[in-house]
Design a protein around this nucleic acid. Structure first.
Lengths: 110, 110
DNA sequence: TATAAATATTCCTTTGAAAGAATATTCCTT
DNA sequence: AAGGAATATTCTTTCAAAGGAATATTTATA
């Protein structure tokens, strides 16, 4: 789950969202994000090391493009939580409520 | 997308995965993760501030439980990247699957 | 080949967040 | 009311990672 750690940096999240619409060069990314080129390169290095992007050199420039695997992985992980928001979990509230009642009764029992 | 920044800390990711199986108290979490109680409390504070968990006090203890909204939000965000890893052939299947999910959600919403 | 454009790397400084330790708070039990 | 268990908070220290600035590298073109 490297993707989460890597995307926790706001600029990198932004870069990934830019690349959602297609590959871009370093310069284009730097310009769109209002950052200097070295910073863009550094963030792209981190993204590349984590496997989130791949590079396609073209003449002078380098196009960065999203890779799918990390997103698939995140999707799989997220799916393991799906039962939580499909509201099968609400009876746990009742369970906790029962616990509270039991303890209340015990304490007032003597 | 606070959820990504909050889950970038490994211990917090671990806590969330523990809570996937149901609510736990601070002490239980600290024990299972081999960390000291104050650290557990501090991480839970961060998770709580970000809306990832909610608290259910019960006598001496406090049960922490996952909230669904941030996960839904992450799911929505992730879906905006789905075209990247599921091109042309699978599109129809995904569309149908999404429709089914939507109907499921609607019916459980009431 | 020299120069310019695009990109990468290195070094240094700064900053934010996590850990550690001690203490405070809350609530139950006796 | 006192003591104890569970949890929260505060303060300090530590450390990794991001930014800034300068420079190196690569590739194209004159």
């Amino acid at each position: 789950m490297k993707i989460i750690r890597v995307l926790s940096e706001p600029n990198r999240l932004h870069i990934v969202e830019l690349l959602r619409d297609g590959p871009l060069t370093v310069g284009e990314i730097a310009a769109k994000l209002g950052m200097r080129q070295p910073q863009a390169s550094k963030h792209l290095r981190v993204l590349s090391d984590a496997g989130l992007v791949e590079v396609h050199p073209s003449a002078n420039r380098r196009f960065y493009k999203l890779r799918s695997e990390p997103f698939k992985e995140l999707d799989t992980w997220l799916n393991s939580f799906r039962s939580i928001w499909e509201d099968r979990f609400d009876r746990l509230d009742d369970y906790l409520h029962d616990i509270q009642q039991q303890e209340k009764n015990q304490s007032s029992k003597k």
